[in-house]
């Protein structure tokens, strides 16, 4: 067992340099609500911990080009308490709110939720449907990556060993658009999603859907953006028939496993139930958002 090294650099470049120089396993620490637990239960034994909380640019939330830039290490409570952001992205907030308890959200971040790459992470499907763009910084410079390209498998991401997600850009939001996220858990809270569905949609003046993104969580090795499901809503008034088609596409995209958190059959079935409920919630928000 090697000694654990803890570093808390004050700049992104210093953090990247530390990661690039790590000999053994290195972990980026933001809130620590996954990393510390994984260390405690001996799932991981890192050699280096790079705490990014002292880097100002990964912690703030600010307006940018009509949208928002959210620091990857901004805490869940910081995000929930940001009135403008919360009003604009209620579906993202629904996801963030479901991450652990209030105490956990006082530490946990969307960056951590995404990069931990759990298929059941609650803020991830609504980030997918929001079309959020991750800013990734490494030794070679900056990449702007759609969030759905970050997780690749349970616990695995497309990031290189020496790359860090520093922030997310949430694009400007047209009027008459709305998003929503719901998950299913056997308990009311403090649980891990058995399935989760996020939908973000936009309507024209006549109430016809012009754009829709549907994402599902906990029913495949990563959260999935289901293009067919979104397409099923576009050009419709999000009526029952369109929703049925969307539900069928969402169910078809599920590739769940039987595990301690649920059976395949149950997950596929309930994904459809949630997709229907979430579509109605997103539609209601879009109609109200004049």
């Amino acid at each position: 067992m090697s000694e654990l090294r803890y570093e808390a650099p004050e700049s992104v470049s210093a953090a990247v340099a530390l990661l690039a120089g790590a000999k053994g396993m290195a972990r980026v620490l933001a809130g620590g609500t996954d990393v510390i637990v994984q260390m405690e239960t001996e799932l991981i034994e890192p050699e280096l911990i790079v705490d990014i909380k002292k880097i100002p640019e990964v912690r703030g939330i600010s307006a940018e080009n009509g949208g928002f830039r959210v620091g990857a290490a901004a805490t869940g409570m910081q995000i929930c308490d940001h009135k403008e952001f919360a009003r604009t992205w209620p579906g993202v907030i629904e996801g963030v709110k479901l991450i652990g308890s209030i105490q956990v959200k006082g530490r946990a971040s969307m960056g951590g939720n995404l990069c931990n790459a759990s298929p059941g992470a609650d803020s991830v499907p609504p980030m997918f449907t929001a079309g959020a763009i991750a800013r990734v910084v490494g030794p070679k410079g900056v990449r702007e990556v759609p969030v759905e390209q970050i997780p690749t498998a349970p616990g695995k991401t497309s990031l290189a060993k020496d790359e860090i997600v520093t922030s997310f850009f949430f694009p400007a939001r047209p009027k008459r658009s709305g998003d929503a996220y719901q998950r299913f858990t056997p308990r009311t809270e403090m649980d891990i999603a058995v399935t989760g569905v996020a939908i973000n949609l936009s309507l024209d003046d006549k109430g016809v859907c012009t754009a829709a993104r549907v994402a599902i969580g906990a029913v495949a090795p990563t959260a999935l953006l289901v293009k067919d499901a979104g397409a099923a809503l576009v050009g419709t008034k999000v009526d029952d028939a369109a929703i049925e088609k969307m539900v069928a596409a969402a169910r078809a995209a599920c590739k769940p496993i039987d595990d301690k958190r649920g059976t395949k059959e149950f997950r596929i079935e309930v994904t459809g139930v949630l997709a229907k409920r979430v579509a109605k919630a997103a539609l209601e928000r879009a109609l109200a958002n004049k």
């Binding site: 809270e189 649980d191 958190r261």
Partner: peptide, 28 residues
């Protein structure tokens, strides 16, 4: 409602923690 030991075919308990051994929380 939810509490259950889940064993793999190897006889190992798969949910030895409160996250997946689902005791009720206050809001339940």
């Amino acid at each position: 409602l939810n509490e259950e030991y889940i064993f793999g075919t190897d006889g190992k308990m798969q949910n030895p923690g409160f996250l997946d051994y689902r005791m009720p929380v206050a809001s339940d």
